Simulated scan of single mutants.
Amino acid sequence: MHRVIGERALDATPFDADDARALLEDMIRARRFDERAVALQRRGWMSGYPPFAGQEATQVGAAHALAADDWLFPTYRSNAMQLARGVPMSDLLAFRRGHPEFTSDHDLPIFPQAVPIATQLPHAVGAGMAADHMENDHAILCDFGDGATSEGDFHEALNFAGVFDAPVVFLCENNGWAISLPRERQTASPTIAEKASAYGFEGAQVDGMDPLAVRGAIEEALDRARDGEPVLVESLTYRRGAHTTSDDPSRYRDDGPDLPAWRTHDPVERFVEYLTDQGVVDEAFVEECETAANDELDDAVETAEGVPEPGSDELFAHVYAEPTPELDRQRASLAGED
């Protein structure tokens, strides 16, 4: 596994120029999306939003590591990962306005994002065990934050994965904070990665501010998972903003966090600087990416605003495979109030 941590990680990671440009393009798309989403929420366009600025390198790098038929199990802050995987911006925006998560007709192997903390981990393991049972050769990538490691679902999922050799890569985005709680208040373990040893498989850390290192680490982990070896990867990243748009991080976090500069540096700026120094990109390329992302966002907002408002019947349509008498009674009662 990739174990290079620190400000020299970029220099230590080999890369193809076209792949590097594709990573940067998706990171810029993600950053513009995050900025626009926060602005939209602030003017009441949607009720709430979880910013991910600072975590683009981890999420985009991981998404680029996935094979076409690998499944992604995201959490609520995985928007950059979903964008890089191919989910339309309009889908993510419409979801935040209360619509079904996928309003477009795509068939991407992506599980609905989990808003309750850590609930997607057992689902991911179940999907991995099912793939193994059906003799499929794809792997599962399950994304979650460091706060999820304090939930029982985390321990149950990793235990099942270890016992049944589920083809799952557990990607923990350790951004330093579980809402207002710092990592050291959650666990006495020096690292989250080492927790994997309790379940009989390997854990590793990666510089989460380096998309090249993340992609390489996740590619290797997915290859191992396909061979029946689950892996826990702890990506050391940083949440630059609030937990959600209803959070005020100034109440619990100082502006100067007690973390090394490589971990708190803007990952988009860092990657631009590095690729510019390597002669891979120039200012014109970055500007083109930003212009394309803004145009894409304009179209996405228009599309999301055009999604029809659901009728009250939608509340009952997908609760059970077959409606129950009580559900029918509730539907009739609500219809009588319309």
Rank of each mutant, 00 (worst) to 15 (best):
G208N: 10
V206N: 09
L212Q: 05
D210S: 05
D207P: 02
E234T: 10
A225H: 02
E220C: 03
A221V: 00
A242V: 11
E202D: 12
P230F: 08
R226P: 05
A225R: 01
R224M: 10
A217N: 04
E220Y: 06
R224I: 02
G241N: 14
A225F: 01
L222G: 03
G208T: 10
E234V: 07
L232H: 07
A225V: 01
L236T: 09
D227Q: 12
D210M: 01
D207N: 13
R240S: 10
V206I: 08
L232I: 04
V231I: 15
A204V: 07
R226L: 04
E202Q: 12
L212H: 02
R226V: 05
L222P: 01
R215P: 11
Q205G: 09
V206R: 06
V214R: 03
V214K: 04
Y238D: 01
P211G: 04
G203H: 12
R224C: 08
L232Y: 03
A242D: 15
F201M: 08
A204P: 07
A225Y: 02
P211A: 07
V233T: 14
R239L: 15
L232F: 10
E219Y: 00
S235W: 08
D227R: 15
E202C: 02
A204E: 15
D207H: 06
Y238W: 14
F201R: 07
V206M: 10
D207W: 00
G208A: 11
G241Q: 15
M209T: 14
M209P: 00
R240Y: 07
V214D: 09
L212E: 03
Q205F: 04
A217D: 05
M209E: 05
A217K: 01
R240F: 10
V231P: 00
P230T: 04
E219D: 12
V214P: 00
P230Q: 11
G241C: 12
D210K: 01
V206P: 08
V206Q: 09
R215I: 09
I218F: 04
G228P: 07
F201D: 06
G208P: 06
V214G: 08
D210W: 04
A217T: 04
R239G: 15
